[in-house]
């Protein structure tokens, strides 16, 4: 994907804070997965998080919508602090969309029902309106004709696009992507990335764990490199790829770009 084709006109970053993470720590039993993570995400930012496997990058974004609980420090999402208060958690979750590596569509529901379920039950939107919204977003991810099929009848790339549409139906302010293309065949990666690019072009705040460095260069305004549960380096993408500072980053980049 060439950078010139991408419309950056709407990709403006406001000075409003979307996510604020301060001194956040997390353990799995004795294992210290996230160590003193500090990160501020502004509204409209497109952040790509990369790093070797086990570096805690997925865990980090899963903490942002409380799929994982952090044990120390503070996470504030859109002005709401994540604590044990279930009300806050539900509020944050309904405003933060998430796309998973394995899509996690609901196999017993049609594509349309997958997309309307949360708006109807969480947002209490009337069924008809929810269906209209769902069809709008299915058009956007270019699969309106699949609306009445079941997830099992779709290809991986189509399923992932449905998963994106399903998240968008909740009209989220922030989108989290957890390795959205890692489980896809090479031929299908592009269609998912294109969908994500068009989302970025509309000014969506995005945090994306991915190894798609082309995507990072084209869309991200910031690349975060993590290792051993810590943020090792972050920079704007051109500098990050051309001139990495730390040895770990250099090693990582040489390994993923080297072949």
């Amino acid at each position: 994907m060439s950078e010139s084709a991408i419309d950056r006109s709407k990709m403006t970053i406001s000075d409003e804070v979307a996510v604020q993470i301060t001194n956040m720590n997390k353990w799995y039993g004795q294992f210290h997965v996230l160590r003193d993570v500090n990160m501020t995400v502004m509204k409209g930012e497109r952040i790509v998080i990369c790093g070797p496997s086990g570096s805690g990058k997925s865990t980090l974004i899963r903490c942002i919508n409380r799929l994982e609980e952090h044990q120390a420090g503070q996470i504030i999402v859109d002005g709401t602090e994540l604590t044990n208060d279930l009300k806050n958690i539900d509020k944050v979750r309904s405003e933060v969309g998430m796309v998973f590596q394995h899509f996690n569509l609901f196999p017993h529901l049609t594509i349309l029902e997958n997309c309307t379920l949360a708006p109807i039950w969480v947002r209490k939107v009337p069924k008809k309106e929810a269906e209209e919204t769902a069809m709008h977003f299915l058009h956007k991810v270019k699969i309106p004709e699949q609306a009445n099929k079941y997830p099992g009848q779709l290809s991986g790339g189509q399923q992932q696009r449905v998963a994106i549409a399903r998240s968008l139906c909740m009209k989220p302010r922030i989108m989290l992507f957890d390795e959205p293309t890692s489980a896809l065949d090479p031929e299908m990666i592009k269609e998912v990335l294109d969908t994500m690019i068009s989302l970025a072009e509309e000014g969506m705040t995005m945090l994306c764990v991915t190894h798609e460095m082309g995507f990072a260069q084209a869309v991200a305004n910031r690349v975060v490199f993590m290792d051993q549960g810590q943020i090792v380096e972050q920079n704007e993408p051109v500098e990050f790829f051309r001139n990495p500072q730390s040895e770990r980053t250099k090693l990582f980049l040489s390994q993923i770009l080297g072949h």
Binding site: R93, F100, N104, R166, S167
Partner: peptide, 21 residues
């Protein structure tokens, strides 16, 4: 799969909604 619970959580469904739906 665990992913089903996570997807339900991530969409903001509460415990009883996630169980039922």
């Amino acid at each position: 799969p665990r992913g089903q619970y996570e997807a339900a959580d991530a969409l903001g469904l509460d415990y009883w909604q996630a169980q039922r739906l």
